[in-house]
Amino acid sequence: MSLAELKESSVTFQLEKRAPTSLWRDAIRRLLRNKLAIVGMVILGVFLLCALFAPLIAPHDPLEQRLVLRRQPPSRQYPFGLDDLGRDILSRVIFGAQLSLRVGVLSVSLAIIFGTLLGLVSGYLGGWADNLIMRLMDIALAFPAMLLAIAIVAILGPGLMNMLIAIALVSIPTYARLVRAQVLSVKAQDYILAARAIGVTHSRILFRNILPNSITPIIVQGTLGIASAILDAAGLSFLGLGAQPPTPEWGAMLGEGRFSMFTAPHIIIFPGLAIMLTVLGFNLLGDGLRDALDPRLRM
């Protein structure tokens, strides 16, 4: 803060009593000052609009095949060109936003719900429950994430829903550990002791006192988690273990198109760009949220 700014703020302070700003309002203000986070939000906003209004925005039916025009490069009528079966790639990318965002958000939400519960129980109860839960999480983390997801899909069978479950299961340990660490630090605070002393029940302490104080790191990790969930989902679909054809899923589009990319490279360019931009958007927003919500965490 420059001297001028300092003077100005002290003047305003004398003139009017500033209303106390809440954590959230403060965080939003900081977030909106972060240029990279804004870029992330704009990117995500565009994809969100695509996802919400896909049937209105998409120029063509994403499943309609025009076999005569197959592998046609981008033109005015089909700006992203046509794929192997003559389907409009632009429309498929637009509809793909629905799937990718849904898989990313749903799998991370599931992981957060179960991970948070496990972390809360583990951190609050301590003792053998803590030991058991955390050792299980250690075992899960001992697998490379993609490998564990593939193993789970191998058990459940390929498909969009099973892939979503696999990605959620794989991400649970991260949140469980995060929440447990938060709980341990919040638990030691005096106000929890005070709540205990006046006879507040355990569940009330957990959900009314401890959880709200653990929420900011979950939000940050969750946003970054959506980015990696989308990447994993695209990877699994690419391998043929996730969304099945003819579903317009970005990873599956790459998987189907990879054999014709030498004659028609446009088939793989656009779905790949879409994945990259969405993931970039969530990464930028996540970094921004981390800086905004907890300046101490800044790298």
Binding site: F238, R258, P271, M276
Partner: peptide
């Protein structure tokens, strides 16, 4: 943010 399989293809 790059999907490794896409980069590989490109």
């Amino acid at each position: 943010s790059m999907p490794v399989f896409w980069l590989g293809l490109v």
